[in-house]
Amino acid sequence: MADMTPDQMSQFVERLTAAQSALHGSIHTLLAGATDAADVLQETNRVLWRKAADYDATRPFLPWALTVARFEVLAHRKRLSRDRLVFDDTLLGQIAEEYERQSARGGALSALEQCLQRLPPAQRELVDQRYLRGESVKTIAVRQDRAANAVSALLYRIRSLLATCVDHALTKDEPA
C-alpha cells in the first residue's frame, strides 16, 4: 500500500467499492446463503487492502478480487464447527466458476432494481418484509397466519422471477 500513488489508491478504492456487491454475492453463494457472508466480506476487504500493492491495474479487478474472496471462504469454512453444512472444495470451485461467468456481465444491481419495480404490490411487500426489515420466514408466516413452507415457496418464486428478469435484462443489453 505504501508504494501506491494517490491516483493509484483512488483508482483502487473506486474498483474495490464497485466490486462490493459482486464480492458479497460470491461469498453469499459459496456459503449457501449463510448469515456470516458479511463477516467474510469484511475479511476479504481487509485482505484486498493488504494486497493492494500487488494488484496489476492493467488487469480486470473483479476476477482477482473474486479469487481472494474464494480463498477467504475456504479459510472461513475451516474455522466453522463440524456440524455446519458446507459444500466440498470441488463443488465450491464449480460454483465459483459459474458465479464468475455470470458476474462477468455487469449491471445486475441496476437490472434488479428495475425488476423489483415490476413486482406486484403483494410480492413487493413480502420482499420488503424479508430484506428491508430482515424478518425471518417464520416471523412473516406467523403474522400472515400461513405455513412457513408456503412463505418459503412464495419467496422462492419471487427470487426465481427476479433472476429470470435480471437475466433477460442483462442479455438484452449485451452487444449482438
Partner: peptide, 14 residues
C-alpha cells in the same frame, strides 16, 4: 447461482 445471486443482491441492498 442465479437464485443465490439475487438473494445476495437483495440482502446487500437491504
Amino acid at each position: 447461482v442465479q437464485l443465490l445471486r439475487v438473494d445476495a443482491l437483495l440482502h446487500f441492498t437491504g
